[in-house]
Amino acid sequence: MKAVEFENVSFSYQREDDENRKFAVKNVNLSVEEGEFVAVLGHNGSGKSTLARLANALLQAQEGKIIVMGMDVSDPAMQFEVRKNVGIVFQNPDNQTVASIVEDDIAFGPENIGVPREEIGRRIEKALSDVGMTQYRDRMTSALSGGQKQRVAIAGVLAINPKVMILDESTAMLDPKGRREIMQVVKRLNREEGMTILLITHFMEEALLADRAIVMNRGEIVMQGTPDEIFERHEELETYNLTLPGIGALCKKLQDGGMPVPYVLTPEELAEEIAKCVFRQNG
């Protein structure tokens, strides 16, 4: 089954009768399979965050159709069901915490959809263990680090039992340690729990974990493919104001210098390729 489907979707923040209105999202066609991990790349203002808000019915598309787990997002009667199925983790960890205590915050979602009390307790426990924060259940949210706050936010979404989780630049404000923590959690949720993941980011290296990557520019999808395929087309990426992760830039420099290394994605692979070149020369 398709988890998320966009059909010719367009959206503008300006009024419909505005003559020179700009589209934040324009003619987007996208379909995400259940259990798939898709990365959406794009520079700031490319429309990638608008995509998240459309999928969760926080915004309504002016043109086109969005189907989430078989439900039409534009149907007001289905809005609640859509949100139960698609959770979003936002960028700023401070601005999505409702309660002062970790477990109270995680309870907020399940409370809203009317989950019985005992079941909420079980869901909190499961969600906290999923994000590796079990021992923080009674802590104050304000005393946590950025990465921990963001993991609580993920737990808060997990407790609603969604099928799809959208991470809307959820790592942008974190330090590298916090970022690693989040990416580990996301990877595990996808691989072990089968959660469909839509990862919106401008950190190219995060896209490496995805099955598929999509590049957005000026509201349109301009590139699609596996992360390897996308990074292979680095010159095109640069025209969309995206630069390769450090490793890609290094590959390019070596190629320019006359060393026949292919594009690779990790330091270990690059070392491997360099060694191959060197030993080949050596005979």
Binding site: P176, G246, I247, L250, E268, A271, V278
Partner: peptide
């Protein structure tokens, strides 16, 4: 100290392990 190193340092380490 739970700190990262630059990409170049990572590749250098991996190369060193291969004798380069």
């Amino acid at each position: 100290l739970d700190l990262d190193i630059p990409v170049t340092a990572k590749v250098r380490l991996a190369l060193k392990a291969k004798g380069i």
